[in-house]
Design a protein around this nucleic acid. Structure first.
Lengths: 193, 193
DNA sequence: ATGTTGGTCGGACGTACGTCTTAATTTTAT
DNA sequence: ATAAAATTAAGACGTACGTCCGACCAACAT
């Protein structure tokens, strides 16, 4: 976070601190008091701005989704052809794992919470759909894989790609031997070409 | 669970009830008292047998891993050739999603907890490794995909397959439109052949 | 019969939680 | 300058939590 936490308005400050806490220790292990304390704000401020813990987490996730979805789409549209786009997508995931593991952890945690909290679930579903559409539009539109498998809908292909990237990333985050899974991502890239 | 909960010894009874509660409402949303009440046992019995909530969840997961790892391996070894084995593996995941979603939910939840609880993390890592080995040994040993990609280690291929199946399953569990993701699993099958 | 052991039970302990209320303070609009 | 609104602060409320303790009770060995 290179945003200046001090100068931001309080709700931004809370959001950024909340991201830090949640992505470091997990939704279940962070209390509203922790976040209030860490952002130097009264507990009731959190309620005032975000109603409750669920609302706060929702906004943290929204902030992240907004930021990184744009980033992905920019990267993809900057790439010239399908091959470069795939490379860019895989690079994004690698970079996520290596340099922004907190973000990935936050998202994995969020995904699991979504199993039990309806509003989270809608959010996750919407994100998955957006990602699928991005992959579909940018990568599958004009490549031979699309033709090769045109008996399947492009949506299914995109979902499989997304699933593979996500599932592989989870293994990396949780596994002890990270190298072989990074290899898996490279492999995914070469399969797609 | 077709095991007879009534006749089982108390620790088994607790385990089965715990599975039911945890897989229905999630680790964070189930209390020790809930489980004790549902299994008709005093709260302190849970502590007596499993020390604490973490220990109880660990044993629930162990029970499931033991049961379904055997099942997967049996299925795979019963299949004649690589093609059948792949079919069997995909069928297992489909069946998991369709008929035993509780188990899958439990596992996804567990995976997320593993981000923050070291003992869970070891358990997940070990499970992922076992699954990878199973895929590696049964599917990749003698098929042309193995040769086609022999510049990558078999382990990486197996991890990619596992990641794809797991990531796709998560999308199904959380998504509204399940059909297109089932299609993705079919697609995974045809890619592997 | 008696003592011992492993299992069972209800309940209490201290803590932490999310939420809510109420009041003080600052900002904004008139 | 004053009224209204928005923001901040502090604290209490009730609840739920995981853990722990001491009393029972059954079975069994002595």
């Amino acid at each position: 976070m290179n945003l200046n936490k001090e100068k931001a308005n309080p709700s931004q400050k809370i959001l950024l601190t909340a991201f830090e806490c949640l992505s470091t220790r997990g939704y279940a292990n962070v209390s509203m008091r922790d976040i209030a304390g860490a952002s130097g704000v009264a507990l009731s401020q959190l309620t005032y701005y975000f109603k409750n813990k669920e609302g706060l987490f929702t906004e943290v996730i929204n902030m992240m989704i907004h930021q990184y979805l744009l980033e992905i789409e920019d990267n993809l549209q900057a790439a010239a052809d399908a091959k470069e786009k795939i490379e860019s997508l895989i690079r994004f995931f690698k970079e996520l794992i290596r340099n922004r593991p907190k973000l990935l952890r936050l998202f994995i945690d969020f995904t699991a919470q979504a199993l039990w909290v309806p509003s989270f679930r809608e959010q996750v579903d919407s994100l998955f759909n957006k990602l699928t559409k991005i992959i579909e539009k940018n990568i599958l539109a004009d490549m031979e894989l699309g033709k090769k498998l045109r008996n399947c809908s492009a949506k299914s292909v995109a979902k499989l790609i997304l699933g593979a990237l996500y599932g592989t990333s989870i293994q990396i985050m949780l596994g002890s031997d990270q190298d072989s899974v990074f290899e898996s991502l490279n492999l995914a890239e070469s399969i797609l070409n």
